[in-house]
């Protein structure tokens, strides 16, 4: 780790002791421990290089999938081209469940379910971003949008027969066989991932105007029905 960062950790620790406890900006020291799960693929700090995943220096404010010299999945390129930038809120959504935000990402990581773990690891990542400056007012410490779905929505049991009918609108573009020729596969997803992704489109947290439009007019029962149907299709 670069010397500068040790300094800044100390500094932020001071800040944390005084103010951050109330504002929930995360604990970078605790975040460094969480980051152990990430570092086998993602290098961070001085001299970091792309490995299995891209290095994560300077990630804040950067467009997703924008490093020259790293081969991203088509899925991540697509969300990047759709306008996704990495900030505290988008990182929080992504880290909770990468596939829900960018289906088909090669980041084979199940996600950090614990909100505090995400908060802490984001605080840790922030120390390796010079732009914007690591000051409390700057991005990413602006309050994150809460993407957590109402547990009642996640608990809905979908009607697969209704889902089968509704699915015919999806299969105009998404192949029922699970093929991916420029539009990702949506079959055999865990129902929860499907519901989270569709609500992310519905709430316009996830880019792509076609999907925002299609999801936008589906209600929670209809999304649950689709999730129930697609979860059982044979690939």
């Amino acid at each position: 780790m670069a010397r500068r960062n040790i300094l800044s950790i100390l500094l932020s620790a001071v800040v944390l002791c005084t103010a951050a406890a109330a504002d929930d900006f995360g604990d970078p020291e605790a975040g460094e421990k969480v980051y152990k799960q990430c570092k086998s693929c993602h290098q961070l700090g001085e001299g970091a290089k792309h490995r299995i995943g891209p290095h994560l220096n300077g990630i804040f404010g950067r467009q997703a999938a924008s490093h020259e010299g790293f081969r991203y999945s088509k899925a991540l390129v697509r969300v990047g081209a759709g306008g996704l930038e990495w900030h505290a809120d988008t990182l929080d959504t992504f880290l909770e469940n990468p596939r829900a935000m960018a289906s088909g990402t090669r980041m084979s990581f199940k996600g950090l379910k614990d909100a505090e773990d995400r908060l802490n690891v984001i605080a840790y990542l922030r120390q390796f971003s010079d732009n914007p400056a690591d000051i409390p007012e700057a991005d990413p410490t602006a309050t994150a949008t809460d993407h957590n779905l109402d547990p009642a929505i996640l608990a809905l049991k979908g009607d697969p027969e209704y889902g089968a009918y509704l699915s015919s609108e999806c299969t105009t573009c998404h192949q029922a066989t699970g093929g991916d020729d420029g539009i990702p596969s949506i079959v055999l997803w865990p129902e929860e991932d499907f519901v989270i992704a569709m609500h992310a489109y519905k709430n316009k947290d996830r880019p792509n105007p076609v999907m925002q439009m299609m999801a936008g007019r589906l209600n929670a029962e209809e999304i649950a029905a689709l999730a129930a149907y697609f979860a059982t299709l044979e690939e």
Binding site: A81, S168, T172, Q175, D181, G182, I183, P184
Partner: peptide, 23 residues
């Protein structure tokens, strides 16, 4: 729009073509 967005839109159209003809 940026060239990245336009390229993604074209690739999406190719995915749609396979999707609808299969459908």
């Amino acid at each position: 729009e940026t060239s990245d967005v336009r390229k993604a839109t074209y690739e999406e159209s190719e995915g749609w073509y396979t999707g609808i003809t299969t459908d």
